[in-house]
Amino acid sequence: MTAVTLSEARPARLRVDGRLGQFALLVPALALVTIFFALPAIYMLRMSFNAHEGGQSYSEAWTFANYLRLLTEPIYLFSLGKTFLLALVTAAVTVVFAYIFALYLWLQRGWHKLVFLAIALCPLLISEISIIFGWWMFFPNNGVLSITLLQLGLIEDKISLMYTVFAAIVGLTYISLPFGIFILLSIFDGIDRRVLEAASDLGAPPLKTFAEVLFPLTRSGIVVAFSQAFVWTIGTYATPIALGPDSLWTIGLEIYQQMNTWRDWPFASALAMVLILLVLGSMALTRRLTGRDVTHHV
């Protein structure tokens, strides 16, 4: 009798204070994202309806003026369009590179695989600013590319790819490539490699194997990798202005400009809201297309 009460009483007591205690463990993380992310986001939403007059950063109001300005003034529309296009192109290039590399990684074994994994990890460990600086020394007139080609006798005059959209896309792709590789590798690792043998035994040519076997099996990975690269590029600030032409003025730059030069908090907030919407939109689209959450798949 006593044994029964003991064994029943103990777990019951543990469950009660254990559960409460465990809920308490969720609080610090929840507080951090609420206080420093959710509340500032809500505050920015409110701020985006305020007015900006005179020397003050903002004045209380309820107006759609900031959003109207964004949607009617050509320079902001262009900036938005260019940022969107830049993110799309970067995401496409990233997916192609990542696919080629992940496919190769998937087929390797042993130390060879480890070496290529380490190479894929490399861009992830380097600061964006160091990456920018590296390409900044590679592309210009007196840069490594131009001098090397000149010394090899491949060109007559110095060339510069600096401050071109191409250079900006190279820099941005470099940053999002490792994420693409690891997302796709995780998909490849779930595929039985014998499907390829089967396809080739049945006489399928390589392109057909890719189109009818590999591509359908990796479709969701491609979508998630694309969405990931898009999301990381859409809010970019530094790389396009450092490597690209002056005309490649992204939304991220515009936000910084509005905040630091014009002190226009409401308009900067409206621009930030657009970025948040674009990120949420692409996450929702990814979920629709793959049935997966982007957040479950870094």
Partner: peptide, 21 residues
């Protein structure tokens, strides 16, 4: 979702939010 979301937000958005708040 809430805990993971900031990871997908551009640094410029997080920075701006904290700066004005």
């Amino acid at each position: 979702f809430l805990v993971m979301l900031p990871l997908f937000m551009p640094g410029i958005v997080l920075g701006l939010g904290i700066a004005i708040a």
